[in-house]
Design a protein around this nucleic acid. Structure first.
Length: 110
DNA sequence: CCTGTGACATAAG
DNA sequence: CCTTATGCCACAG
């Protein structure tokens, strides 16, 4: 924990802003933070977010709408269940109608 | 300071 | 559709 954990905090803040029934991508968050090429850091932050219950990591997926991070959740398909409970359709670990469910930090006004 | 690693993204075969 | 490879950057040891 450094005083400069700003990056992680940023990721957490943005993640908390994700509306119910919506999802976003690591790249989108990274871009919003000004680190488009650091999408991996977002994933890393998410990994650390497991300590923060306030961060809905299940709403963060890769750009393909694929639940690549589900393997980090406890249950076999816990992430999918959480998303489905929010009205998001998932088939083969992939979000359906992604464009309809996708949310970008820049669309805060939506 | 150097190395390994990672829940990504993109390209190539 | 699959696997590999590269870039990218922050953090941990």
């Amino acid at each position: 924990m450094s005083d400069n954990d700003n990056f992680f905090q940023r990721v957490y803040e943005v993640s908390r802003l994700i509306p119910y029934g919506r999802v976003t991508s690591y790249g989108a968050i990274a871009k919003y933070l000004g680190a488009t090429k650091s999408a991996r850091m977002v994933g890393w932050a998410m990994n650390a977010s497991k300590n923060d219950d306030t961060v809905p990591a299940h709403r963060v997926v890769n750009k393909q709408g694929l639940l690549t991070g589900k393997i980090h959740f406890q249950g076999k398909n816990l992430m999918q269940q959480l998303l489905e409970s929010e009205g998001i359709e998932i088939v083969d670990n992939q979000i359906q109608n992604l464009e309809d469910k996708f949310w970008d930090p820049a669309d805060l006004d939506i």
